[in-house]
């Protein structure tokens, strides 16, 4: 563990806000982006990311020096975002829509509810928009690992340690997630050409 980071961690444990802010300077952007990909809209991503970072600050005294700080931080971010999502989704009822079953959970139908509708992160119908929406529809487990691996570029080992899973499980979830995404994008491409969607 780099000494500078260690120093900042010690200070943060004493309640030093400036030290903590320096400590998370790079991480907060990634945290926000992960939240954005998981939750879909900027408002929620902001809330969840902030909540996670505050939790990191609150619990930093529990952080063990031998571990990797970034892994610990992102674990909290991921958990906070998924908790947030579960709370939000439990408030809505998708009973009207038919859901597609997969082994990792259900793929969600297109969202009709205001609250969950992603704000226009990108231009409507741009490819990026489509990808962003498609990610939203992945089941939680697949979505998490695809974001961490294929968007944020984290290694399998880091992801495995972050989520407390064997590397093999991580790999297979990623594979399924990618395939599901691929399928969603193909479907939307098909739908774009005149079929009802």
């Amino acid at each position: 563990m780099p000494d500078a980071e260690h120093e900042l961690i010690l200070k943060s444990q004493q309640g030093d806000v400036a030290a903590f802010e320096a400590l998370i300077k790079q991480h907060q952007v990634v945290a926000y982006n992960v939240a954005l990909r998981i939750l879909g809209n900027q408002e929620d991503a902001k809330d969840a990311a902030q909540e996670a970072l505050i939790k990191v600050f609150k619990n930093i005294s529990k952080f063990k020096a031998e571990a990797q700080f970034s892994t610990w931080l992102y674990r909290i971010v991921v958990n906070t975002c998924n908790d947030y999502l579960r709370k939000e989704r439990s408030r809505q009822h998708f009973s009207l829509d038919q859901e597609m079953e997969t082994s990792d959970g259900t793929l969600k139908r297109e969202v009709a509810d205001d609250r969950m509708a992603p704000e226009k992160v990108y231009e409507a119908n741009s490819l990026r928009e489509k990808v962003h929406l498609a990610i939203q529809r992945l089941p939680e487990q697949q979505r998490t690992v695809v974001i961490l691996r294929d968007i944020e570029g984290m290694s399998y080992e880091v992801i495995a340690s972050m989520l407390d899973l064997p590397v093999g499980t991580v790999k297979s979830r990623i594979n399924r997630g990618r395939d599901a995404l691929k399928q969603l994008l193909i479907d939307s491409r098909v739908n774009a050409y005149g079929l009802s969607g």
Partner: peptide, 30 residues
């Protein structure tokens, strides 16, 4: 496509709001 998704910048008052909340926590920690 996934790889090329841009890194979104933090919203405007993200750091400011976060700072306030951290200050509050800091008091409790101290």
């Amino acid at each position: 496509l996934l790889k090329e998704l841009p890194i979104e910048p933090l919203p405007e008052n993200f750091e400011a709001t976060l700072h306030e909340a951290l200050e509050r926590e800091s008091k409790a920690i101290r």
